[in-house]
Design a protein around this nucleic acid. Sequence first.
DNA 1: AATCGATAAATTGTCGACATTTATTCAGTA
DNA 2: TACTGAATAAATGTCGACAATTTATCGATT
Lengths: 226, 226
Amino acid sequence: MALDNPTTQAAVTTADKVFEQMLHAIVDGTIKSGSKISEPELAKNYQISRSTLREALNRLEKCHLIERKANVGSRVVECSIAGLLEIYVVREALEGMACRQAAINMTEDEIIEMKAMLKQHASAKALRDGIAYYQEEGDLDFHYKVILGSHNQQLINILCGQLYHLVRMYRCQFGMNSPRATKAFDEHSRIIEAIADRDGELAEMLMRRHIAASRKNIENKIAQQQ
Amino acid sequence: MALDNPTTQAAVTTADKVFEQMLHAIVDGTIKSGSKISEPELAKNYQISRSTLREALNRLEKCHLIERKANVGSRVVECSIAGLLEIYVVREALEGMACRQAAINMTEDEIIEMKAMLKQHASAKALRDGIAYYQEEGDLDFHYKVILGSHNQQLINILCGQLYHLVRMYRCQFGMNSPRATKAFDEHSRIIEAIADRDGELAEMLMRRHIAASRKNIENKIAQQQ
DNA sequence: AATCGATAAATTGTCGACATTTATTCAGTA
DNA sequence: TACTGAATAAATGTCGACAATTTATCGATT
């Protein structure tokens, strides 16, 4: 659970471990976004050889967290409003489709599990008057489960394997604890209903609106700050 | 133009060149899908060190053309009907959205260029009575241009950077020269119209239907073969 | 003083060797 | 004969050093 990502398997090699450490550091901003990466320096810091470090860098590049130029080096990806909005556009398309596929392909057991999860979120929400907790963990859990429920390996790879690290990075660095907790919860409920009804078209539409609402919420926030 | 991919930049390092060679070999089946990759053997074949080869393998992995297991090795991705259909689902979602964004973000010049391209395809089609040529190059050109027209770097990366190599691989190995040439051409025309009208909603819908039709065409072909 | 060019320093790319893990072989036993 | 398990072979992971390229430094010239 080092990555809070249901598709990640245990890190066995040292490059794996360094990858996870760097992933964490980049997501929470310890390694600043936009900064250049010095291979000799980092290799010394983590006490590994440059080969091993480069192996870790390659995995970070796969997640689109760093960018490499030949004979020049690597930089941590830059966090920008435009970049964040781009990701939301992709998520709207992909998670919308994932939701449609989930309505088609989810097993009854998976649906029961999702309903149970939502019930648990509801009680947690009632207890804590739902703010931070639900927003962070619960929201991710929900989206992960829907994506996995699509039973489409390509969708799962792209969303859980690469995009979601970027999403978490933006959430951390821009401090997104938006006041959409209650609204989001209701939207999640309706989405699960549509999936349980095996109504793929509605499920996709609701998921797209759910993500679009998130995006507009951010756009408003940005507009306010300016 | 080694990769027929508008987003690829010149290969400067030897790892780049080996990557391109292997990419070609995997796409056209010289390196068989599902086969195991022996690092020592390939390194000898290409006359490079294992480090350099591994660098090339990492890029292939980024394109989802090979899969690696820790301490076990790499295998070329397996071509299956299910896998092909999965890709079409992802393309329907992503290219649909790309088309919507293209309707919003394309410049007038880009639209003019697209119309010119289509006109050229039309004459080529008339001349050769449209079979192979349009299907292969023309279709890819069209889809590439729409994707680039979205002006969304994430969409461009995912579609042109990774998914399209897989698409080309399947086209090569399954021998897809489907008889949809004329129909596809008409669909392309209507999509460009929608983009020119800045009608994002229609553009997305038409692109989704266009790709879904391709998918159904394949499903039918498969069903016939059995 | 600013710009250009050459030299020097540092960084990335590549290599071959060693360490560690996995796969194979083959002898021994039930 | 079939199966287990230890020894062997092979493959992957990691390391440190060298080569090639880029960046920084510094002196010369306009």
